Computed example of a mutant assay.
Amino acid sequence: MTATVGIVGASGYGGAELLRLLDGHPALHAEVVAAHSQAGAPVAATFPNLAADRRFDAVELDRLRTLDLVFLSTPHGPSLELGAALHDAGVRTVDLSGAFRSSAEDFATWYGEPHPRPDLAPAVYGLPEFNRKQVVDATLVANPGCYVTTALLGLVPIAGLLQPGTVVVDGKSGTSGAGRAAKDALHATHVAGSVTAYGAPGHRHTGEIETALARYGADLGAISFTPHLLPIARGLLTTSYASLDDGVTAADVQDALVDAYRNEPFVHVLPAGTFPVVKSVTGSNGCQLSAVVDPRTGRVTVVSVTDNLGKGAAGQALQNANLMLGLEEATGLTAVGVYP
């Protein structure tokens, strides 16, 4: 039986990636492909890879209520309104924004505004590797941020080996992570041949990383996070540093990572000293990671890579949707990137 799904925000990069993935999904049909400002426009005019004869739909709540599941690939403002309405109507929803990832108190701190539905904050956090049972039973799932997903997959398994207050996360993302809006900082002549930091020290993903670590039983205190923009279209790399507890060895770190992901379809742990390459996961829902320990400083370095539109957004959203609809988790997804 085929389930009907909708995408709101289909004219953005995340929404378009969802549509691409759904085109090859054997059990889900994209019944609604909604884009408020581009309703009625041909999809292929914006995304030539999606060349089917299809036009963007208008955002109509009554129509969305008839679907089995809705993806919200919208900024947090529209997601707050639509996510709450769909939840109240009993429609399974995966939200790709930050609208429902944190508590109402944390949302106010990092977004500078009160949360209109504190009863839904936080929703079930959609990082299946650590809470797939909750995702299965959820009506509303908050898809983690791209930087956060990539950092957490490297940090959560070893969090119990780390000293609180010592975690530093350095993140680097392709320009698609900044969305389709025309911005001077994303101009091709400005990005090409350059790398720049932005958003420090108050990037919203800082609080999300701290909260998520605590959610999984590893309250490591305040972290430092700095994102950077890479001159590539898609792909994301995080390098995380932290001090190890006394007596923790490199073997302890490697064993913790291998044990955590031994049976996971999308996370691959590389041998210590073999660093992952962004290109290896491009176009996939995969994550590759590795860790090395510096015995001189007693610190660990964890390097993780994902596709910011894959495991960092649309791929993970589809992974969550599969679980919510009772499908095999990996249906329609792959951990194998497009290389070279």
Results as ranks from 00 to 15, higher is better:
4 T>Q: 14
7 I>S: 03
7 I>L: 07
10 A>T: 08
11 S>R: 03
11 S>Y: 01
13 Y>C: 05
16 A>Y: 07
17 E>R: 14
18 L>M: 04
19 L>M: 12
23 D>V: 07
25 H>E: 11
25 H>A: 13
26 P>K: 08
27 A>T: 13
31 E>Y: 02
31 E>N: 08
35 A>F: 08
38 Q>H: 15
38 Q>I: 01
42 P>L: 01
43 V>Y: 02
43 V>R: 07
45 A>G: 04
47 F>A: 02
47 F>G: 08
51 A>I: 03
51 A>D: 11
63 R>V: 02
64 L>N: 02
65 R>Q: 09
68 D>A: 10
72 L>T: 04
72 L>Q: 05
74 T>P: 00
77 G>F: 13
78 P>F: 05
81 E>G: 06
84 A>C: 09
85 A>W: 11
87 H>G: 00
88 D>Y: 10
89 A>H: 13
90 G>Y: 13
91 V>H: 04
91 V>I: 14
94 V>C: 03
95 D>G: 04
95 D>N: 04
95 D>Y: 06
95 D>M: 04
96 L>I: 12
100 F>W: 09
102 S>A: 15
105 E>C: 03
105 E>T: 08
111 Y>K: 05
115 H>P: 12
121 A>P: 12
129 E>T: 11
132 R>E: 15
138 A>T: 03
140 L>M: 10
145 G>P: 03
152 L>V: 06
165 G>R: 00
167 V>R: 02
170 D>T: 09
171 G>K: 08
174 G>H: 07
181 A>K: 09
185 A>K: 15
187 H>W: 11
187 H>G: 13
189 T>G: 13
190 H>G: 15
191 V>S: 05
192 A>M: 05
193 G>A: 08
193 G>S: 11
194 S>W: 12
202 G>T: 00
203 H>A: 14
206 T>P: 02
206 T>E: 02
209 I>M: 06
210 E>I: 03
212 A>V: 01
217 G>D: 08
219 D>I: 03
220 L>F: 10
223 I>Y: 01
226 T>I: 14
228 H>I: 01
230 L>K: 07
231 P>S: 11
231 P>T: 11
232 I>Y: 08
237 L>R: 14
238 T>D: 03
240 S>G: 10
245 D>V: 13
247 G>T: 10
248 V>R: 09
249 T>C: 14
252 D>C: 04
253 V>C: 05
253 V>T: 05
254 Q>K: 02
256 A>E: 02
257 L>C: 09
259 D>G: 08
265 P>N: 08
266 F>Q: 00
272 A>E: 12
272 A>Y: 09
273 G>M: 09
274 T>Y: 07
276 P>N: 07
279 K>H: 15
279 K>F: 11
287 C>A: 13
289 L>W: 02
291 A>W: 06
292 V>A: 13
293 V>C: 00
293 V>L: 02
296 R>Q: 15
297 T>W: 12
300 V>F: 11
301 T>D: 12
301 T>S: 15
303 V>C: 12
305 V>S: 06
312 G>K: 04
312 G>L: 00
318 L>T: 00
323 L>G: 01
326 G>E: 09
326 G>S: 11
326 G>P: 11
336 V>A: 10
